[in-house]
């Protein structure tokens, strides 16, 4: 897991991490209202892997390649790892 992979997952999902959202990133899955999901995303249109990779390269050093986009998906996306129990009681509400 690297910052580049994390950023690629963020852009892949079309969210801005520092924006107030009705849902936490790991809550953006089936069973939540489409209205809340829409309020989390900046667009419903997916970016191409090339565009996501370009956005990652603009922030992170190295040659991040399109084939690595979303190589470490966030929860609850398919392929995300589930080694971590939720720490829901800590931190900030968005």
């Amino acid at each position: 897991m690297t910052a580049a992979l994390v950023l690629s997952a963020v852009h892949h999902r079309r969210i801005l991490p520092l924006m107030s959202r009705p849902l936490r990133m790991d809550e953006m899955g089936p069973g939540v209202s489409s209205r809340d999901l829409e309020a989390c995303r900046m667009s419903n249109e997916a970016l191409t892997d090339e565009e996501v990779a370009a956005r990652v390269r603009a922030a992170i050093a190295g040659d991040f390649k399109p084939e690595h986009v979303n190589g470490f998906p966030m929860r609850p996306d398919k392929g995300s790892i589930d080694q971590v129990s939720p720490f829901s009681t800590y931190g900030f509400d968005s």
């Binding site: 897991m1 994390v6 950023l7 997952a9 963020v10 991490p17 520092l18 936490r24 990133m25 790991d26 966030m74 929860r75 995300s80 790892i81 971590v84 129990s85 939720p86 720490f87 829901s88 009681t89 800590y90 931190g91 900030f92 509400d93 968005s94």
Partner: peptide, 11 residues
């Protein structure tokens, strides 16, 4: 923020 929310499942 993304590590906390999307992977550690917390704010």
């Amino acid at each position: 923020a993304a590590v906390c929310e999307g992977y550690l499942r917390m704010m």
